[in-house]
Nucleic acid binder design. Structure first.
Lengths: 357, 357
DNA sequence: TTGTATGCGTTATCAC
DNA sequence: GTGATAACGCATACAA
């Protein structure tokens, strides 16, 4: 005699009627009663590598299919303490500028059986209020592309939620991060521009307090100094099209003679910069001026632009982020690691260039 | 005498030590024991509008803060049967082309206390296998931007999961949907091009079996017929830059004399088409040929393009989708509804146009 | 207003 | 291999 309210055996119609009457979802008990096995047997059938006989497995699966049964992730996560959910924390502009990164992350995590919960904010300073929502859902980890405060990092650690910084890193704090080598990339581009005879450089880049923007600036400045060239004019802004356009105007305004090479912090800015140079100032690019970007977004290869830029290996970076986070969730890794990828040079048509060095 | 293992009262340090020892997360029981109240009292404090005295509320909140307590969404959803999770089902190309839609949806749902779980697929035909994963997570609803089969619609209904079609609709099947009036938009654009004296029209649009592409084609064809103009040349493809470029080539190839107006199914295609016309065929746009788009994506307003297009009211559509889905989840609405928005004309520089009629 | 007791649907630990 | 049974952490009906 079983004490459960659900009879041991039943017809499909009876069970469906019961479920409808109680207006609830199909549970493993329903499947068990239809298949004539225990609830635990059903549970085991849905756990890969569990010990079930072939016969029971078949009966259970048939019953499950007939009832449209799907295990309840909430109940599962309650006991397993894993939700198979990963939070992606990014600014709205990051989604706008780098949709492919989101696609790649979604795909990579999906391949590892995990789904992405998207948390966006307008300003990175809103990360804090966003985090409050993040903790509610029992996410297994987070991919963060925002400036993190030490207090926020501490909170992740206190709560035991692993995270990976994406395209960001921190000075004076060791955390797991996936980045592209900005210094190397900047030096490469500066070298090739210099080799082609450019003399007067300008930089249009993102916020002055962004560490990756600082890296790029440093890479360029150091390389130019090494080559005995004058220091570049530097303009800071956002990282969008409009900032690129504004940057171009500011550069023209500040320089007596316009620079012959303008290196932008990303492709969006480079495109804004390029459009403004061509249409507003009637500057011929690359004949009178070279303009370079960084990222290798889809738009950079459009015929109208055909940007000379450095492509970030988005897919490799997404794979790395997924691998790293899955590893952390399984407690396989311990010491913080930074995985640094190299950007790939894209020889477009917006810069006169010397040979690769 | 309470039968729980957790003592009635305790110091912060003791409780934290206990939690660490058992390597579990902070629960409402921990908060209760620190605050010296029952677990249900804690639960009530986190439910807006519950009956709690001011004094207990303060004690509980203080304790919760000291312990970094956050309610466990999985446990909550188990009992409330609501997860505050919404699935967004879109193709990767939709994410790439319309990141702002994703941003707006994320924002609108966030304002309603709901988070987005992202499910993407390469081809819309993969929707089926994606759905299997969707059911596991107890989502409260879904926003779908893909062609849905009757069987898939039936499955949503069988499982009692409300959904809203976004930018899609179905013939011969009434479902909740948010769309932009393609027929109206197409007619508007055709009228204005015709008024400016264009005679030879071509259409470059998405897949022939897409209902919204069919709508656009029908709108244009009917309007041209009404005006006594010859039927347009029609080319089908994807909805991306490359398809636009290919479309332009095919149009040139198929027409003895190139058309003087090319209407594209979206901005991405229009941009590809425009780049190819200008750079590959040396066609002067809009002097020799007018090219129009549809969507009003960010790139359409870049100086290099300044596309003549019709902007979809993305924000209004996202608001509508969120409102509709939240209503459905609360069982407030019953009959399927289609909310149809009008596109807004954007007077760019890629078409010679007559006055608004 | 507050506390007790119960159940949500699963996994995990045992005996068998 | 299989079936009872005990958690998981919360919300809720009900008694006090």
């Amino acid at each position: 005699m079983t004490s459960t309210a659900i009879p041991v055996s039943n017809s499909i119609a009876d069970i469906k009627a019961l479920i409808r009457r109680e207006s609830r979802r199909v549970t493993s008990y329903d499947v068990a009663s239809l298949a004539g096995v225990s609830q635990s047997a059903v549970s085991r059938c849905f756990k890969p590598g569990a010990s079930v006989s072939k016969a029971t497995y078949a009966r259970v699966m048939k019953a499950a299919q007939e009832l449209d049964y799907t295990p309840n992730a909430a109940a599962r996560s309650l006991i397993t303490r894993r939700s198979n959910l990963v939070a992606v924390l990014v600014s709205e502009s990051a989604v706008s500028f780098y949709p492919d990164v989101l696609n790649e992350l979604t795909r990579q995590f999906a391949e590892r059986g995990m789904r992405i919960v998207l948390f966006t904010f307008v300003h990175e300073s809103q990360l804090d209020s966003t985090l409050a929502d993040v903790w509610q859902h029992q996410i297994d980890g987070a991919v963060v592309s925002a400036r993190m405060l030490p207090s926020q990092i501490a909170e992740f650690e206190r709560r035991g939620v692993p995270f990976v910084l994406f395209n960001r890193h921190l000075r004076d704090q060791s955390v797991n991060a996936i980045v592209c080598d900005q210094v190397e990339a900047a030096r490469t581009m500066a070298s090739r521009l210099a080799a082609a005879g450019h003399k007067r450089f300008a930089i249009i880049d993102g916020p002055a307090d962004s560490t990756i923007a600082q890296d790029r600036r440093r890479g360029i400045s150091e390389r130019l100094a090494e080559l005995g060239l004058p220091a570049p004019v530097v303009v800071s802004g956002g990282l969008d099209y409009t900032s690129g356009a504004r940057g171009m105007r500011e550069v023209i305004e500040r320089c007596g003679m316009p620079p012959d090479a303008v290196m932008c912090g990303n492709d969006m800015m480079a495109i804004g910069c390029l459009d403004t140079a061509r249409h507003e100032f009637k500057i011929s690019v690359p004949h009178q001026m070279s303009i370079t970007g960084f990222d290798g977004i889809a738009q950079s290869s459009w015929l109208c632009y055909n940007l000379t830029t450095l492509r970030q290996p988005v897919q490799s970076m997404a794979v790395a982020a997924a691998d790293m986070l899955v590893g952390l969730a399984r407690q396989l890794e311990r010491a913080p690691e930074r995985r640094v990828f190299s950007a790939v040079f894209v020889d477009g048509a917006t810069a006169r260039l010397g040979p690769a060095f």
